[in-house]
């Protein structure tokens, strides 16, 4: 059936390709871009992005219409939790035609890839987006190694 070694090689190559493709499919399901309206009645929490820039992580979360007093961020080791609630400023004496935004209480937690320095976290709330700048802890920072 296999006359040459290269046939077997090629077969395994094809299997590897398939495995990579399958891996990517599940990756897409896991955390994929979502272009929906975001924080609504049915969603479980705000959408987040995570960026890694050298010795800091940046976490962004979509929190439209939430004031800073209603947000709570806690960090322990490499575990980060964002809690919050949204109360809508429904005006008095108005008839409601459409209510899609919804009030919600949410909690999202993440395990960051490295331990972080919880003392030096910067949190900013701007235009309905929460920006968290989290520096890595000393032990986890990338180190320059000199070659002798």
């Amino acid at each position: 059936m296999f006359t040459r070694m290269s046939d077997i090689d090629r077969m395994f190559g094809a299997m590897d390709l398939l495995r990579n493709k399958m891996g990517r499919i599940f990756g897409d399901f896991d955390r994929s871009l979502d272009y929906g309206p975001g924080l609504t009645l049915s969603s479980s929490g705000p959408r987040t992005n995570l960026y890694e820039d050298g010795d800091t992580f940046e976490i962004r979360a979509e929190v439209p219409g939430i004031v800073k007093d209603d947000l709570n961020v806690s960090i322990q080791g490499n575990y980060l939790e964002i809690n919050g609630s949204r109360s809508l400023d429904t005006p008095e004496g108005y008839k409601i035609h459409r209510a899609e935004r919804g009030t919600s209480t949410f909690s999202r937690s993440f395990t960051l890839p490295n331990d972080v320095d919880a003392e030096k976290v910067e949190a900013n709330l701007k235009d309905g987006i929460l920006y968290l700048k989290v520096p890595k802890s000393e032990a986890a920072k990338p180190k320059q190694i000199t070659i002798r």
Binding site: R31, S32, L33, D34, Y35, G38, R47, T48, N49, L50, Y51, E52, D53, G54, T56, F57, E58, R60, E62, P113
Partner: peptide, 10 residues
């Protein structure tokens, strides 16, 4: 800025 680790909004 930096390397994207995960992205849910854009």
């Amino acid at each position: 800025k930096g390397v994207l680790k995960w992205e849910e909004f854009n």
